[in-house]
Design a protein around this nucleic acid. Structure first.
Lengths: 204, 204, 204, 204
DNA sequence: TATGAATGAGTGTTCATTCAT
DNA sequence: AATGAATGAACACTCATTCAT
């Protein structure tokens, strides 16, 4: 009935508030330096409520990571969709990632942090790794489509994907660390062109 | 006298054992999931001995980071030294980094982890940031020398440096996360060429 | 609602158990030689519970001190109230203190111990000092009222207050240290009369 | 031979430096907040040297206490010696103590602090107690001589001694705590006369 | 379902003491 | 005799998680 509906909606809202409070705090103070209580306070709920929505602190990290990658991949898919040329496809792919992280510094930082957390429970580590694999796998698939003419091995393609993801997130996270602004024009334009400068001719 | 010499050497050895035990554990289990006691056990000394050599856990991280960047920069300097062409210079720079991190996965992971640790004590955060700035500053200086013909702004140069550092460490850390091997041949060759593939023509 | 009431009462009870366990242990073993865990064990709660009620070990000392002086001053106020003669007023004041500490050896010892703890955090030291000042200030006020005829300077009055407080607590703490019993009769009677004996004539 | 002599003298000097450094630090920062290392640093010797002169930290406290009481009692004996009247004798006794502690605030504070330290090792507690007993016993003996006319019980005399010691040290320590100056004129005069004011007539 | 009091394992750090030189 | 590096027991405090209401 309607009552159940409303309850459901309220729960979903609470869960969402918890998730976004956690994301904000994790990226501002670091995952380890954010306590569950800080999260619940920021979300304006009782401490116990956290465990009604997430079985553990690790679980919310997983949730955030999963949702985050979903958003990233969706944005990429949207931008790449219905692009004819292979070359343009790759450019769009790169551009989409830059644009996404430009708007979502929080996810940039979260992804970076979590990548530095191997251990946790082995079980969790596995799960987290899967998310990054999903990212890389997506890129690899796109690259395969784009480069179908040139017969790269699967491994080569996967390395290309790593290079691409690594470049985007690595570059941006250095900018963040140094406190450099990247504002205006497409980040892609500025960054890649500059970076490539020194190695371009070599590959020609 | 000879006695003092020997004592000094023994202390230096202990300190070194602590540092390398810490580095190994930090990169295997994560900084936060490694206790000081685990470090001292691995170094085969008493727990209190740790604090005879480092004032705090944070201090050993700083030490490791500092030494690590020293090694990295020295290797780069060595390889770039007495290279005539600007282009070759840039290539060597990139290559040096790849080679360094290829041998020092531990430092790759350490640098990555620490970059994700904004908070700590503000004082520590500042110190840590300084190390990354040192790295970027070094690259920027090299790039300035290499590109002296083309009048880039200082900011552009700095972004180039970020892009370079970000690419190298980002790429490699994705390889590590996915458990991909990077086998034989110069990592530079494989990676950059592949990565550039999709954007090369665009910059021509 | 009734539920909240009950919870509140239970918490207050726990807090009280912690406070009184702490007081007992502090006065039996010394503040420094009593661990927080011993306190919680004596109060029959988990270790963490301590910190739900007091932010630190120092905080409980402050609490105990504050409450203790409250009790002392209230007892004095009660006994001095509605006493006509100035002389009787002073006697009652002295008597009230003796009677109080006679019953509260624990507070006698606590006050003594804490007085010997200058350092702590400067911030704490200030707070603790304030409590003793409150005590002395109270006595000084009473003495001012009692001696309003004779125009003593404020400083003199304050010294009188110190002398009074010092005598009472100093005397009693020596009795405690030596393990002397102070038996029946009003402690005031026995002690002051004896002490004064040697100096009386001189002041005449 | 002369060499041994010189060595002996140097050792004694070191021991003395340690003792006085300890006394200064104990009274400035508190016994518990002073580390053995701080003491040795202040005495300008190596940390290990401490244990060449005192078997433990507790031992140096005992030493300080013992020496301190020796000085106090000697001063009293000196001042009381060859005083005819009983009354004057008591006054001198009181005066000697005030004068002593007026010059030796450090010992005042040390005695106060240690009195608040019951526990330690039971064995130590016993030893420390003995020192205070020595003090009280000395006063009691003097009082007995002074009051030999009036047949007080031994217990009463002992209580008188406690009252006297308690008054002197209690009064002064309150002055110290409140940061009141007591400078000029004999402390005895000021303090006792004032204090007694309220109770004098009663005892007449 | 929401709450927050209770819990206790776990951590960084201190410091008196020992002992090889 | 003097030293200071090494030691490890001890301690205050934190925090994810549980559970009674």
């Amino acid at each position: 009935m309607a009552v159940e509906r409303r309850v459901e909606r309220r729960m979903a809202a609470t869960r969402e508030r918890l998730a976004s409070a956690a994301l904000a705090l994790f990226t501002k103070q670091g995952i380890y330096d954010t306590t569950v209580e800080e999260v619940t306070e920021a979300a304006d709920v009782g401490k116990g409520t956290f465990y009604q929505h997430f079985p553990s602190k690790t679980a919310i990290i997983r949730h955030l990571l999963h949702e985050g990658f979903d958003e990233l991949l969706n944005q990429c898919r949207r931008e790449v969709r219905s692009v004819a040329t292979a070359r343009e496809r790759v450019e769009r792919l790169l551009g989409a990632q830059f644009r996404f992280f430009g708007k979502r510094r929080d996810l940039l930082i979260l992804f970076h942090q979590v990548r530095g957390l191997i251990k946790l429970q082995p079980k969790d580590a596995r799960f987290l790794q899967k998310e990054y694999e999903r990212y890389i796998h997506f890129l690899a698939t796109e690259l395969t489509t784009s480069f179908e003419g040139r017969r790269y091995t699967e491994e080569t393609i996967r390395q290309m994907a790593c290079a691409m993801a690594g470049f985007v997130t690595g570059y941006l996270s250095y900018l963040v660390i140094l406190g450099l602004k990247t504002d205006r024009a497409t980040e892609l334009d500025i960054s890649t062109r500059i970076f490539l400068e020194g190695v371009v001719e070599r590959t020609q």
